[in-house]
Design a protein around this nucleic acid. Sequence first.
DNA 1: ACCTGAACACCGTTCAAGT
DNA 2: ACCTGAACACCGTTCAAGT
Lengths: 229, 229
Amino acid sequence: MATQTEPLASRRDPLTRERVLVAAIALADQSGLETLTMRNLAHELGVEAMSLYYHVDNKEAVLDGMVEVLIDEINALVGDIEVGTDWKEALRRRILTAREVLLRHPWAPGVIESRTNLGLSVVRYFDSLLGVLRAGGFSYDLAHHALHALGSRAIGFTQELFDPDDSGEDEANAMLEQMAGELPHLVGMMMEIAHDDPGSTLGWCDDQTEFEFGLDLILDGLDRVRGTA
Amino acid sequence: MATQTEPLASRRDPLTRERVLVAAIALADQSGLETLTMRNLAHELGVEAMSLYYHVDNKEAVLDGMVEVLIDEINALVGDIEVGTDWKEALRRRILTAREVLLRHPWAPGVIESRTNLGLSVVRYFDSLLGVLRAGGFSYDLAHHALHALGSRAIGFTQELFDPDDSGEDEANAMLEQMAGELPHLVGMMMEIAHDDPGSTLGWCDDQTEFEFGLDLILDGLDRVRGTA
DNA sequence: ACCTGAACACCGTTCAAGT
DNA sequence: ACCTGAACACCGTTCAAGT
């Protein structure tokens, strides 16, 4: 326990690429991606902004590296999951494991989707998914389609179009009621939900439930086309 | 035809919110989203940057408005599609119509996903999808799950994780070959593709085919759970 | 009502210079 | 080898002022 109380890295330790990336992740986790500026990041490391450029090409490289660190973490967890017994379960467990990691880093989905080309760790992750599919009897061609069909779900997230945890909930409800004539099905749905579970309207979506519903829908679909083709 | 040769709007016409949004879309279409700055946009309209703020709250409002205009266009096209004969076909046609519009505006997916709350036009679009599902016999609850399962596919796009049209293709191929030992399934897939269709490796994905494959997989899946539940 | 000039508080980044 | 200070070219945005 004595070693635990030591600081992880003294302010006077020389900077490394690794330390920069870890600090960037911590900063984005705690304060949000919009406060991740080169100046803030440098300040967090007890250094001037320009020092970062000695260890990292530019800000894009920082974002690339943050994703890399995260997916490496996923790869480490996912490597222990056995392949071959049941491809659907093996894939499902990998994806839900990846999701657990990403859920701890709300900035990750947006940053991942903004990368123009993904690094080696993501390639490794997809190679392992491909391995599961192949072991499950998929042709390369069908496995390729499968990964496209899963899309970002393959690494454990979907970008929700309407994010409910925002403040504009009451406002949105008011809009809906006012538009009752123009949006008949939407208000019908809201009314049924209000009836079944009074008090909850827009905040009722359980992201994890929806994610697993969609995931299982696709996995079951793939199982069927695998049998057909 | 004489009226056609007249400029759409004289430089001296007073600015309107509408003209700002249309110009913003045109600028993003032609030069990419990164060149859509308030200054550039103003210049395009023959005006100073600060004049924009008289018609628009801020840049976020411009982006909101651009999405709004786009989805309104989709709604107009989609309104003519009949409901009721075959829900799957009706939904499919709506989604593929939306996709056709979005494909003309490469910046749209990213901007849509970056909105914290979507406007009325998107709500209207989803109401119409809900209508199709209801007419097809879906309960509100199942229809709700269905829209979540479709995610951004419901408005016609998926964010591709690896976008192939970029310049780094040869580089990526070189990486793959070097990593042959570590990425057995990926190189196996590449080799099979190279064998079947020599010369094409990373650029082989047909986005439209993959989109429709995934879409049909989900629609078929929904058809089955509808029967079950 | 509609537009502008000057200015502010921020960015990421370069470059020559320090130790 | 590693870090810094000053400066540059950009952002979005405010505010008082012009017509």
